[in-house]
Design a protein around this nucleic acid. Structure first.
Lengths: 228, 228
DNA sequence: AAAAATTTTTAGGCTCGTCTAAAAAATATA
DNA sequence: TATATTTTTTAGACGAGCCTAAAAATTTTT
């Protein structure tokens, strides 16, 4: 049985390995966890003892199969809760991280699976991250970004790529949220900024960067034209 | 900020005071919490330090106003989660206690209140316990028990009085659950046992004791008669 | 390759929540 | 009222998870 703290370390290690595809070093984990290298060494020893990680002194940490499974289960739980918080309790994107962080530690496989059923087996969370299914399989995202849309085409916002609190608040300030209809009017040839119309109502200008961080589900061509 | 453990002690103290209307002694808490009197003394000191309880050596423990509020918030959270688990995730009565015990420690007022809204401000949990509202006010239950029903009258099961795991499992085995329609056919003059028909389908015999532990919402007279 | 800088580990200590054993206080019994 | 019993508290210890400071190992620089 893992403590919440142990679970958080595991998640952090998983994420780091996922991005770098290499053994994680102590300082990286310490930075991610907001703690010291010494504490990390302590914890790594505990997790190695319990066979969740492989540890070589002065080299780094890798996950065992058991550790990998555990990390994926946590990610599954966290992302399912995010779906619940956004879709059913109407939390905004920038509010769910902290809550899901707590909820993911609730210990009950049954609860996770029933939540999954209740939410209708979602494949992605509201922040655009894939949700592993009960077998631990991730669905590959093939969704488009706003920046992938052509002029005169449109879609519905389904997720975000960047989940920093600041970015999510920026989006909220621009009235961009899940379900917002977005149609591209112009794309600047100089800086790539995108003039869009939201829900057929409000025109705004998005920076290129902004457009590259929001996923949309494109409308079929027959729905594509804007109704004024 | 209280730890989960501190919160559990507070809840235990609250419950004890609620039933006895007297200061709680160390051993009672120890028994309730499954720990030792010495540990309780330690914890009481911490809670007194933080001004959640009043403690007089060798006398007992009472809650401060602050402690009372905190305990009621926990109870509110726990019971709202139970409603969610039963009504939306279709857990049975006997499965929710352990889960709600974990969920009640999630720290977020906003979450509690949104859950309350989502669930449509329920006044009672599925086990029949009143849910304090955001102000901490409990609704008085005025619901009937199966044993209060007259012959030829009926109602719908809405809650249970006794929430021990064994009892809840017994109910499940008898096919008694929330929403089950129950109509009284006979009441034994000797032992008070009650012959009922469930959902107009299945006749069973309930002991008097059983009938005294299940709440029903009575049907109005026009609906009362059984349709065969 | 030696010195310098960085990274990682060890050593020792702290708090929280727990324990057992013993002391102190309160209550019950003779 | 003196003694016995029960209850409560104190004292001391332990593991988990964290810290800082210092030592050890590794990597980088010269």
């Amino acid at each position: 049985m893992l403590s919440s703290t142990e679970e958080n370390y595991l998640k952090s290690i998983y994420k780091s390995i996922e991005t770098t595809q290499k053994a994680v070093n102590t300082n990286t984990i310490a930075a991610e966890m907001g703690t010291t290298a010494a504490s990390v060494t302590d914890m790594i020893k505990r997790l190695a003892e319990k066979e969740y990680v492989l540890h070589q002194k002065y080299y780094g940490v890798l996950l065992t199969e058991k550790g990998n499974e555990a990390a994926k289960t946590l990610i599954r739980k966290q992302r399912l809760w995010k779906v619940f918080l956004v879709e059913w309790l109407h939390f905004s994107w920038d509010e769910v991280n902290e809550l899901a962080e707590q909820l993911e530690h609730i210990r009950s496989e049954e609860l996770t699976n029933r939540l999954d059923v209740f939410l209708n087996h979602p494949k992605f969370d509201p922040l655009g991250e894939a949700i592993p299914d009960i077998e631990g399989i991730f669905t590959e995202r093939k969704q488009l970004l706003i920046s992938d849309l052509a002029i005169d085409s449109g879609g519905m916002i389904v997720a975000v790529k960047n989940d920093t609190s600041i970015f999510l608040q920026e989006l909220a300030a621009l009235d961009l949220s899940i379900g917002t209809r977005i149609d591209v009017l112009e794309i600047s040839p100089t800086d790539g900024s995108i003039k869009v119309i939201l829900d057929n109502e409000k025109e705004i200008l998005l920076s290129k960067k902004m457009g590259e961080n929001v996923f949309v589900k494109p409308f079929h061509s027959r729905n594509r034209h804007i109704v004024y």
